[in-house]
């Protein structure tokens, strides 16, 4: 939801003359993937977006994924994912291919490896800690008189 994401791959200029420039860009870019995609019916666009949601196209704002970002790079990435899906690659294979091509930064959340373990482990630890406090609290039962409140 960046300001810059608003204008999609046509984020070019000022006046309505922009429309022309936009189309030039558009013709050159892989935009209108739906059109390119019209011939292939074995993969749905929704599947492409589902996969793309796990990635963060370089240059997109950190809070937008390959499924929501409207920058040029995101269009490229979606098309790349579309091709890989059409080749029959699994999600796992696509992940390996994209990571080896772009590096770890292509992932929209760190993999639970190396330093990235921490980001996943801490919330789990927090819940575990909270639950253990809870169980200690309710187990500490004394034969007490009814509570006054």
């Amino acid at each position: 939801m960046s300001r810059s994401s608003l204008r999609g791959p046509f984020r070019t200029g000022r006046a309505p003359a922009v429309a022309l420039a936009a189309l030039l860009l558009w013709a050159a870019s892989p935009a209108g993937p739906e059109a390119a995609f019209a011939q292939q019916r074995n993969v749905t666009w929704q599947e492409v977006l589902d996969v793309a949601a796990e990635y963060h196209p370089p240059g997109c704002p950190p809070t937008l994924t390959g499924a929501t970002c409207q920058e040029r790079q995101a269009f490229d990435l979606r098309l790349e994912i579309l091709k890989l899906l059409e080749e029959g690659k699994s999600r796992q294979e696509i992940r390996q291919i994209l990571v080896s091509k772009y590096g770890q930064d292509i992932l929209a959340a760190p993999p639970p490896k190396g330093f990235g373990v921490l980001v996943w482990a801490a919330p789990v630890a927090a819940v575990a800690f909270g639950l253990s406090v809870f169980f200690l609290m309710v187990r500490r039962r004394r034969p007490s008189p009814p509570a006054g409140g």
């Binding site: 796990e54 950190p62 809070t63 770890q104 930064d105 929209a108 959340a109 760190p110 330093f115 921490l118």
Partner: peptide, 17 residues
């Protein structure tokens, strides 16, 4: 920001997390 400080590389923690 923590990952930047600890490893020098800023990790993206996005909607999937």
């Amino acid at each position: 920001v923590i990952s930047q400080a600890a490893t020098g590389r800023q990790m993206v923690v996005g909607p999937p997390f």
